[in-house]
């Protein structure tokens, strides 16, 4: 308990440091006092870039990272599947279908509305998976999510490829924004959309964790403890879908943060208790994404690597390491 709180505080401190670095580093690198000046003084040459480009982007990374981490914790513990992540829910492919269709067919959609439409696509894909899995409980739930999720993802992928085939080369460039996870060129509006989905999802996740923790003991034990097993599992999947869908709609597929943050949290806090893991995983997820985004825009400056690629490149070896070390799932 105390260790978890200390680790959570440590992760929050790391997050603060990552945010500050992210704000300070860029085309013009600023010292902390300069940064403060740039953010507050409208006459400062970097004011617009600091306040309307770097700040929302950094905060978006933090909010999205926490949302992905919460989705990972809920999915892993509610399904009893240590490698579960929002990829299972097909949300990013649902977002991609909408984005691809709107872009290629040149639907008269204002740019501000496109994220909301993508969100609808992401949520629809998540809902299809969750509802197809059904409230039925039992060890089969995890398997059914994997199978139905794979089917929905494959179907959406097929649609996206088909739609791209109808488009021009110019459309494909636009589409990259949705097909590869990225925080680039996201502003306050984008942050607002993500926060509107992620903040309620985080609160709901916190309230659900105690019941989700009981699911880890098996459905009969959980029922005996007074947990409404089917309802709790359904709620956990819906909340995870909400968090993952809002992130996918705005940032595209950001892989591995949801999978890794809970594992890092369990290892660092030395506990597998769902509520404590969530408490630690949220700031860990934020930090992971902010750092990954910072790396993705500075590593090959001025060329930017989509952050989804950065998280994958970091995530795969880390996951392999965790697996080989036999970390408790």
């Amino acid at each position: 308990m105390y260790r978890s709180l200390v680790v959570a505080a440590g992760a929050a401190a790391l997050l603060a440091a990552a945010l500050l670095t992210s704000l300070a580093v860029g085309a013009a690198t600023l010292s902390p006092p300069e940064l403060l000046l740039a953010l507050t003084d409208p006459q400062h040459p970097v004011h617009v870039s600091a306040l309307h480009v770097r700040l929302p982007r950094a905060l978006l990374g933090a909010v999205a990272g926490a949302g992905l981490a919460a989705a990972g914790v809920l999915l892993q513990d509610a399904l009893g599947n240590p490698v579960a992540g929002p990829e299972l829910l097909g949300v990013s492919s649902g977002a991609a279908v909408v984005a691809a269709t709107a872009t290629v067919l040149h639907l008269p959609v204002p740019l501000q509305v496109l994220p909301l439409l993508s969100l609808a696509g992401a949520l629809a894909a998540g809902l299809v998976v969750v509802l197809a899995v059904g409230p039925g409980s039992g060890p089969g739930a995890s398997t059914r999510v994997v199978l139905v999720g794979a089917a929905v993802t494959a179907a959406c992928g097929g649609v996206v490829v088909a739609v791209i085939g109808l488009g021009t080369e110019g459309d494909v460039v636009l589409l990259m924004r949705y097909l590869l996870g990225s925080l680039s060129a996201r502003g306050w509006n984008d942050l607002a959309v993500v926060a509107l989905g992620v903040v309620p999802a985080l609160l709901a996740a916190l309230l659900l964790t105690r019941s989700v923790a009981a699911l880890r003991l098996g459905d009969h034990v959980a029922t005996g403890l007074g947990v409404s097993v089917a309802r709790v599992r359904l709620m956990a999947l819906l909340v995870a879908s909400l968090a993952a869908a809002t992130v996918a709609a705005i940032c595209g597929p950001v892989a591995y943060v949801a999978l890794l943050a809970p594992h890092v949290a369990r290892a660092a806090a030395g506990t597998t208790s769902t509520p404590l893991v969530l408490l630690v995983a949220a700031p860990v997820g934020s930090t992971l994404l902010v750092v990954a985004d910072l790396a993705s825009r500075t590593a090959f400056y001025p060329v930017e690597v989509p952050v989804g690629i950065a998280t994958t490149l970091v995530g795969v070896p880390l996951l392999a390491l965790l697996t080989l070390r036999g970390r408790p799932a």
């Binding site: 880890r216 003991l217 098996g218 009969h220 034990v221 597998t272 408790p328």
Partner: peptide, 8 residues
């Protein structure tokens, strides 16, 4: 049918 949660 109780499951031992890994790590708990």
């Amino acid at each position: 049918s109780a499951l031992a949660p890994p790590g708990a």
